[in-house]
Amino acid sequence: MKVAIIDYESGNLHSAHKAFERAAREAGIAADISLTSSPEDVSKADRVVLPGVGAFADCKRGLARTPGMIDALQDAVIARGRPFLGICVGMQLMASRGLEHEVTEGLGWIEGDVVAIEPSDPSLKIPHMGWNTLDLQRDHALLKDIPTGENGLHAYFVHSYHLVPRSTDSLLARTEYGGPVNAMVARGNMAGTQFHPEKSQKLGLGLLANFLRWAP
């Protein structure tokens, strides 16, 4: 199985790569995981991962800078139904639009906007930074055998914006930070996490292994 982690010069790709390797090794899954900036590799991959750290518009520009990359992504994920995981801004890019600093068009896979989180308690700090639990909206293969809820495992978040899907059908998990904050989206063969599974120890490695096993 070939897994392509898209390298578009955004963020801690090294960590994502190593976390995937460890998750595969511990779960006994034979996977060839590579960091790549080549659209051809994305076309050939059995699974595609889009990480991302930073601002929405910057990341979108970074992705668009590699000729053919967005087309290769659309083809692999939409036309051929390859399992896809977006992480942090990589998840946000699945939306129709990002409203951080400026209005930026996303990949348009999940209808909705990426907007600033606004905790009801003004003393709560922004970014929402640290470990928080997940409130599941429905069951999903990515969270199989992962304890969620107030007494469940924790995921590491660091963000000031979140994806608000137009239809709640796409919403997989939320977290609580002065009101609900969207933590995971999923639709068909694609899923996204606002938190960083590659930095979320037990929960994260479990989720990455589930992604490698996922047969949507």
Binding site: N12, H14, S15, K18, A19, R22, Y156, V158, H196, E198
Partner: peptide, 25 residues
């Protein structure tokens, strides 16, 4: 697989970039 902060002697964005690429969060 947990967040890592690195400090000390950081003077430029180039210093930062090297640390982030090496795996600092």
């Amino acid at each position: 697989f947990m967040p890592l902060t690195v400090g000390g002697g950081v003077r430029t964005t180039e210093d930062m970039r090297k640390l982030l690429l090496a795996g600092a969060d």
